[in-house]
Amino acid sequence: MRSLSPAVGIGYRSAIDEWTRAHLGDFDVLEITLDAYLGGGRGVRSAIYDLVGRIPLTAHGIGLSIGTDAPLDEGYLDEIAETIERLKPQAYSEHLAFTRVPHQDLATLLPLPKTEAVAADVIAKAQYVQSRVPVPFLLENISYLFDWPDSTLSDADFLNLIFGETQAGLLLDLENLLLNSHNHRFNPYEFLDSLTPGIVKEIHLAGGMSIDEDGLARPCLVDSHSHPVPDEALDLLEYALTRHAPANIIIERDARFDAVSELLDDIARVRARLANTVGNFHVQSTFGSAG
C-alpha cells in the first residue's frame, strides 16, 4: 500500500479554454465533458483533443440518462465509447438521474424514485455500460429539488445497493450532498458514514446559490456552479477523505467566468485541506480494473 494524494483539477470548459491552458501547470487533472466534445464543432473538438497527453484527463457525461425507464440509447453509447477510445481518459462518469424520455429531453438532471426496483434497473444498465467502455464507470449523486413520494430507500442505501452490485465507483459530488442535506434536512456526515467505505472514486466540488421564490416553503440551495466552493463542502471533503480514497477531485464552474481566477483560490483551498488529511488514508490503487 502506498500513500497517495488525490489529483486536483477543474472541469474543462471551452469558454475558459485560453485561461485553462495558461494555468495548466496548476492542475493535476482535467475533467472533459464528453457531450461538449460530441456536440461541438471542430474548434471545440480539436481544443479538447489537444489536451490528450498534456495532462491526465477524466471524462464526464451528461446525456446518458441511465435512469430513464427505457433501453439505453445505443447510438449515444457508441459515440461515447468511440470518444473514450480517442481521448483515453482515466474513467467515465455519468449521473444517477434521468434527463429525457423518448421524444423529449429536458436537459436537466432529475431524480429517480429510490426503490429496489429502480436500483435493479440501474444496476443492469450500469453493468451494460461497463461492458461497453474500456475504463472504469462512475455514477454521480445529483442535487435534487423534489423527491418522488414512492422512494423507500435513503440516499446512501440507494447508492450502496447500486455500487455494491456493479462495482462501479461513486463520483461523490459534495456540493450536491451539501445542497440536498439543506433542502431535504438530513445530516450530510451521517450520509458519509452510511456509504460503503471505499466506493468513492472521484469527488466533485462547486459553489451554488440560494433561491427564494413565492410558494417555496423556504429558500432552496441550487447547484449553479457559479461561486467559490463553500467551506462547508471542504469540511465534508476532509471528512470523506478519512473513509475514501478518490483518484481525482474536480472543481466545477459553469458561470461567472469573469471571476474565473476564483478557481485557483479553490484549488489552493482544496490542497490545503488535503495537506491536513493526506497522512490519514492509504490508497491501494486509484481505479480498479476497467469494465
Partner: peptide, 20 residues
C-alpha cells in the same frame, strides 16, 4: 405527480427552461 411539491417543480421547470 401527486405528492410532489408544485413550488419545487416550478423552480425545476424554470431552471431547465432558462438553460434552454
Amino acid at each position: 405527480l401527486q405528492g410532489i411539491d408544485r413550488a419545487l417543480l416550478r423552480l425545476e421547470a424554470r431552471s431547465a427552461c432558462n438553460r434552454r
